[in-house]
C-alpha cells in the first residue's frame, strides 16, 4: 500500500491532504505508522517496530493495524486506493 506522496504531517498529529483539502487528526502511534508508510515501510516492518517499542503483541497489533489502514483507505489517503500486497 502506498500513501499519497504529498500528505503533509505535523508533530501535533495534524494530517493534511493537499489534493482534496481534507484535514485529519491522529494520535502519536497513528502518526508514527503514517510516517513509516510514507517512508515505504511494509506491514511487517511496522509490526516489528511497534511490538518492539510498545507493550503489545503481534495478534493485537495486526488487528488494529489493518483497521487503521482501512481507515486511511476510507479517508482517501492512499495512492490509487489499492490494497497492500504482503
Amino acid at each position: 500500500m502506498k500513501l499519497k506522496k504529498n500528505l503533509a504531517l505535523s508533530d501535533s498529529g495534524f494530517v493534511f491532504d493537499p489534493s482534496t483539502g481534507d484535514s485529519f487528526s491522529t494520535n502519536p502511534i497513528g502518526l508514527e505508522i503514517i510516517r513509516m508508510l510514507k517512508e515505504g515501510k511494509n506491514a511487517n516492518d511496522i509490526k516489528n517496530h511497534v511490538t518492539k517499542t510498545y507493550m503489545t503483541d503481534d495478534a493485537s497489533f495486526e488487528k488494529d493495524y489493518y483497521d487503521f489502514v482501512n481507515m486511511l483507505t476510507k479517508h482517501n489517503l492512499v495512492e490509487g486506493g489499492e490494497k497492500e500486497k504482503n
Binding site: G30, I34, M55
Partner: peptide, 14 residues
C-alpha cells in the same frame, strides 16, 4: 522498558 500501547486512530477534522 516498552511504552504504553494505544490503538492508532485517525479522525477527519469535520
Amino acid at each position: 522498558k516498552k511504552l504504553q500501547y494505544e490503538r492508532p486512530v485517525i479522525q477527519k477534522l469535520n
